[in-house]
């Protein structure tokens, strides 16, 4: 464990809590892409199946349960409890175009061809594009509430910090995982234009307006 990965996991946890809190407090999921949340739940479910087979640390096990529980709780709030506020018309990204290619790629490019490893690889590829429905929705509505942009900033920062963690681990332990690194770079690059808007606008108190 290193400071980059720790702050990355913390940013990830903060992002999830910001979102859950926003939906719960405002009793509304307006502006939130349920499809992205479904993809995240799929990512954690396929990645954390090893909860039953391998034990890394109490921290690792605890965080896996937290990510699984919060992602399903978020889906419950969006699709059940506050489904009246779910914005169907703007959450229209075809997620099968993300799931199927990720699965195909996981079957072709992986470290080992066994069930858990292919699912882990699938979850890595899927996570790199899971935010697209949300970014697509923000671009369609042309704007995002500031709390949603804080959520996106924390979520984007988590994988950016993981990149620093991978550099650090390669430098200190000689450990590297190219699949995670390439997917993590793609994932972070997808946030770049949002990061730019967030830093130049939201931090100056302006609303996040995306050129529609």
């Amino acid at each position: 464990m290193n400071i980059f990965r720790l702050t990355g996991d913390l940013a990830h946890l903060i992002a999830i809590i910001i979102l859950l809190h926003k939906i719960w407090k405002s009793r509304s999921c307006a502006g939130i892409s349920g499809k992205s949340q479904v993809l995240f739940a799929l990512v954690y479910t396929t990645r954390y199946l090893d909860l039953v087979t391998s034990y890394v640390s109490i921290y690792n096990t605890f965080m896996k349960f937290v990510f699984l529980a919060t992602s399903y709780a978020t889906i419950y709030l969006i699709y059940v409890k506050f489904k009246a506020t779910y914005d169907h018309n703007h959450d229209t990204f075809r997620i099968e175009f993300l799931i199927l290619p990720s699965l195909a790629l996981a079957l072709l490019i992986n470290h080992y061809f066994n069930f858990l490893e292919v699912l882990w690889t699938f979850s890595i590829y899927l996570e790199s594009v899971a935010i697209l429905p949300q970014l697509f929705m923000v671009s369609k509505t042309g704007e995002a509430e500031s709390i949603t942009s804080h959520y996106l900033f924390a979520l984007g920062s988590y994988r950016a910090l993981y990149i620093l963690n991978w550099i650090y681990r390669y430098a200190t332990e000689g450990h590297y995982d190219l699949i995670a690194i390439v997917a993590g770079v793609v994932q972070t690059v997808l946030y770049c234009d949002f990061f730019y808007l967030y830093i130049t606008k939201v931090l100056k108190g302006k609303k996040l307006q995306l050129p529609a």
Binding site: H12, F67, H111, Y162, H175, Y176, D177, L178
Partner: peptide, 10 residues
Amino acid sequence: PQVVEDHDEL
């Protein structure tokens, strides 16, 4: 350096 055996990251 070797490719990771089991995944110790979240």
